[in-house]
Design a protein around this nucleic acid. Sequence first.
DNA 1: GCCCTCGATGTTATCGATAACAGGGCGGCG
DNA 2: CGCCGCCCTGTTATCGATAACATCGAGGGC
Lengths: 358, 358
Amino acid sequence: MSNGLPEQGSGSQAGDPGQAPRPAPTMADVARRAGVSAMTVSRALKGAGTVSDLTRRRILRAVDDLGYVLDRTAGTLSSRRSGFVAVLIPSLNNSNFSDTAGGIGRRLEGSGLEMLLGATGYDRGREEDLIAALLRRRPEGMVVTGGSHTERARLLLGAAGIPVVEMWDLPPEPIGHVVGFSNAAAAAALVHHLHARGYRAIGYIGGSTDRDTRGSDRRRGYERAVRDLGLPQGLTVACGSPPIAMDQGSEAVVRLLERSPETDAVVCVSDLSAFGALSECQRRGWSVPGRLAIAGFGDFELSRSCHPRLTTVSVDAPAIGDGVGDLLLRAIAAGRADAVLAPETRRMPFAILQRETT
Amino acid sequence: MSNGLPEQGSGSQAGDPGQAPRPAPTMADVARRAGVSAMTVSRALKGAGTVSDLTRRRILRAVDDLGYVLDRTAGTLSSRRSGFVAVLIPSLNNSNFSDTAGGIGRRLEGSGLEMLLGATGYDRGREEDLIAALLRRRPEGMVVTGGSHTERARLLLGAAGIPVVEMWDLPPEPIGHVVGFSNAAAAAALVHHLHARGYRAIGYIGGSTDRDTRGSDRRRGYERAVRDLGLPQGLTVACGSPPIAMDQGSEAVVRLLERSPETDAVVCVSDLSAFGALSECQRRGWSVPGRLAIAGFGDFELSRSCHPRLTTVSVDAPAIGDGVGDLLLRAIAAGRADAVLAPETRRMPFAILQRETT
DNA sequence: GCCCTCGATGTTATCGATAACAGGGCGGCG
DNA sequence: CGCCGCCCTGTTATCGATAACATCGAGGGC
């Protein structure tokens, strides 16, 4: 790395508003300085093609001298490859999703594909907007969370002609590839687990809207299991719109026990609300799991660390990301060979972690 | 919105690997169908310029019919405006940073600028790589977290000729604009607060590397305050590399009290490690704050919700984002008028939230 | 009634890199 | 000794949109 970067753009230096910044050097400038053609510079810079060692060194030298930075915008246009995939998750600040994003990123490393992240805020309209905005930048693949999208979002994705992966769910009518699991089955399994441990009046705390479709699936799974087991129904508390926060769990558990004091266990839509419920019980001196057993969903760091440790459902979020990345790479490779990778659905496992709150 | 999207790209349909996907329609195709020139389509689509209502309607109709999606890549090249700013944060899954990112995004809404997020993993080398990769896509502005970067990162940013904002810190030698606060001063204030409440043997739990520069600043602030107050020194526990997790806090608090049983309070580098310490104390039956007072940093949702509630330092993360967004907008506007916005430093307030653990 | 202005649209050149093809030199093989 | 082919490099055309300038017609002020 040469230390002397260029003469150009002393950009945000103190206020001389007159100083017109020189235009950034282009590949042609580098070529001129190295005494070669632009094409050779292009080849040298991307490592592909054949460039003699001497020439390459001269070019890299010129790049350093000028402080040249490749313009991928132009490259994208002429090569028709943007070199990135778009990934939409409901929320950045949710370790399940950010772990998955991390897994995708790791899988893509070294492949020449970058990952561009967007957060929908659990809002299908916002997801649609983001999809439209991202497609304008010509991603080579698109990953969305869940299987529920606006009509137009589905149309856009279908017509984009790029691989699409839906994750964290098992959509009944997938758009393309899928890497996920059944949230309903996981919640049902949790209810069965509680039943096996002797709990009989099992409640549920979750969102009051269907915005979070994974949350809704969990509620449906819970309801089915309770019905199948012949347990009392109607122990559901709706506590607002997603993302369901800790204090919503706190409020909900109080409402639940006031309304239905016979409740001896509760399943929460996520570890966050479960933790809120747990803390509230501690504040009020309600023993957990003595008075009330509490189970969460997601195996967040929190639930491993708190006291008592939260029983929860664990999903291998990074592995979902890895699977998504793998599918993307294969589908994009296929696309470059003018083929199409037949849609795949990967069912990921989940596990119930019996800990101290149940 | 028309419902019939185009004939093109039935993309990821089942496996007929021969089917060459039609190329996506271009602006010229839309123009032809609407009976106008491409330029008029461009004007109609971006709302700028003057296009008669009738023509606009005809164009939008053609866009819908063809399922046309604007190609921003080409637009970027010819207009020399990418329409996005890059934001680098250490970790996605940290509500402080993701809240700030949210604040930036909200501020940018409607401005025609999109936000592209990258995570450095608290790694300066990775930050440098990300900066280099992002600059190739010609962002109109760049936001980085903290004031410590590799030499080359500084050079790249300085030479890019775009507004640069450093946030969440007060760098001694800023690259451009700054929106932050002194982490050292905040930690010192926390120590003084504990001292005022009667604590005398105040320990510190934090990372063992300088990778997280905000964490290091906090440690320095703690050390200075302890020295200034004449309190016992040497009560620092180093517990690994960032991001410091909850269970590192758990381990550290045990080590601290084994090594220095006289300790009556501890400041943690963040709420996460503080919560880990708190939980561990509860597991071992050590009363908090009776046996040991615990304070965190960051005012995460967790610390408001847990029992007992954590004393912590609160920073208005979305407000930092708002300030960053505001600076970006003004600086970019100035740049478009061939001017330069003189570097600004915005000092943000922090507050100590006295709660139940101290 | 004439000229000026402005609104609506078209034309041309350009942004910066890369795909595709072309060509020149040199060594090996028959 | 000549030809084939390979390694390296250059030339030309193109990607898709937009800036800048040109054009044309209609309406309004004096």
